[in-house]
């Protein structure tokens, strides 16, 4: 059972209160995007064996979406943060790098 922290409620709750929403920070495409861009926006996923930056919804709580950095190999959680961001904040990156110095957001986008 994962324990996730909702940054809005500032509460640590069990996984069953949340809904997983898949890869975070995917750039939305617009009407003039190419088929290729639309395909990767809609379907191509990083699916990493390692750090996954992902969306979660506090479904049975405040109902808000937020972001989580989590390892898909160890299930370790490196922290959660507001969905109103375009990339993981410094604090989260530092947390990840403490365990995984090789990891860079730019390479993992």
């Amino acid at each position: 059972m994962l324990l996730l922290n909702c940054p809005y409620c500032n509460l640590s709750c069990e996984e069953t209160e949340f809904l997983a929403g898949g890869q975070a920070h995917i750039k939305r495409q617009s009407i003039d995007s190419s088929d290729q861009e639309f395909e990767s926006y809609l379907f191509a996923r990083k699916n990493p064996k390692g750090v996954h930056i992902e969306r979660w919804q506090h479904l049975y709580g405040c109902g808000k979406w937020f972001h989580v950095a989590r390892s898909t190999v160890t299930l370790e959680i490196f922290g959660s943060y507001s969905a109103q961001t375009l990339s993981p904040p410094k604090k989260i990156r530092a947390n990840i790098n403490k365990k995984l110095p090789e990891w860079h957001w730019e390479n993992s986008k």
Binding site: T16, A20, T72, V73, T74
Partner: peptide, 14 residues
Amino acid sequence: ADGYNNYTQRGSFQ
């Protein structure tokens, strides 16, 4: 199946 990406060959208890 579980709802989130995972490589641990376990699953959620619930």
